[in-house]
């Protein structure tokens, strides 16, 4: 089985971001970068399928400047077979532009399965996987929390609001991966050494003109930490109001 996994290099989210001087992005100084969380699950799931089968190939693909090679190497150190960098100076915010560049690369080769994380943790648009599928005319299953491929046929569990569904589909196909599928392995030093010798191809990214462009980035108004809403049961209505209107977590 040949599997392609598209991965993105993103900063660690557990920091206080600052806005860069040009106001169109975050200030990158001091940020630590790694593979986006969901992409890590996808790589792990792909490796497990390859290992289970005892044969096959996992090709990792990333769009971006040379720094993404570090992320690709990480996937290689986890066990991916080879890597492709689609080189561009900056990753566009427009998911469709990204999807077009990826599709033009992926369409040229024959993959049984093309995998994505459900969304990138930085832009959080969650659109690239299904768009690539449409551009390539392939069936797509989004937000898989379980995935199994047996004899050219896939089955998956999808997480929905308040439930889950199980689906079956034929390969080739595109899937996007949700949490819960597999925890990405920690690369061993042995793997890190081996990754240095694995093939990593760099090609120019075939990007169309983006039509969704960042105008500005802002920090949200800071929420006061440790706000005591009140004492005892009397505070409940106010808490519920805050959850609904301020935190917006009751939808």
């Amino acid at each position: 089985m040949r599997i392609a996994v598209c991965i993105k290099r993103v900063p660690d989210m557990d920091v206080k971001f600052r806005i860069a001087g040009h106001a169109k992005g975050v200030d990158e100084t001091g940020l630590k970068y790694d593979m986006a969380d969901f992409d890590g699950y996808a790589v792990e799931a792909a490796l497990q399928m390859m290992e289970k089968e005892g044969a096959g190939e996992v090709v990792v693909v990333s769009l971006g400047p040379d720094a993404v090679q570090e992320t690709l190497r990480k996937a290689l150190s986890m066990g991916a077979t080879s890597a492709i960098q689609l080189k561009c100076d900056e990753v566009p915010f427009d998911g469709f532009a990204v999807a077009s560049a990826l599709a033009s690369e992926l369409g040229g080769a024959t993959y049984d399965l093309i995998m994505f994380g459900r969304m990138s943790t930085d832009n959080a648009n969650g659109v690239v996987g299904p768009m690539v599928a449409e551009l390539l005319g392939l069936p797509v299953v989004t937000a898989c929390s379980k995935l199994e491929i047996v004899a050219g046929r896939g089955t998956a569990r999808r997480e929905l609001e308040g439930g889950a569904e199980f689906v079956a589909f034929d390969l080739p196909a595109v899937v996007t991966i949700d949490e819960g599928i597999a925890r990405p392995r920690y690369p061993s030093l042995k793997g890190i050494m081996a990754a240095k010798k694995k093939p990593l191809a760099t090609k120019p990214a075939n990007l169309p003109e983006p039509r969704l462009v960042i105008a500005r980035m802002d920090l949200p108004p800071e929420r006061k930490a440790g706000r005591i809403v009140g004492e005892g049961a009397a505070a409940v209505p106010e808490l519920v109001r805050l959850l609904q209107q301020e935190a917006k977590v009751l939808a």
Binding site: F93, D218, P220
Partner: peptide, 20 residues
Amino acid sequence: YVVTHPTYTGKVIATARLLA
């Protein structure tokens, strides 16, 4: 169309122009 969209796990709000 000018849209806002929470990015970076909600820690940064992006304002984007949709020209399509």
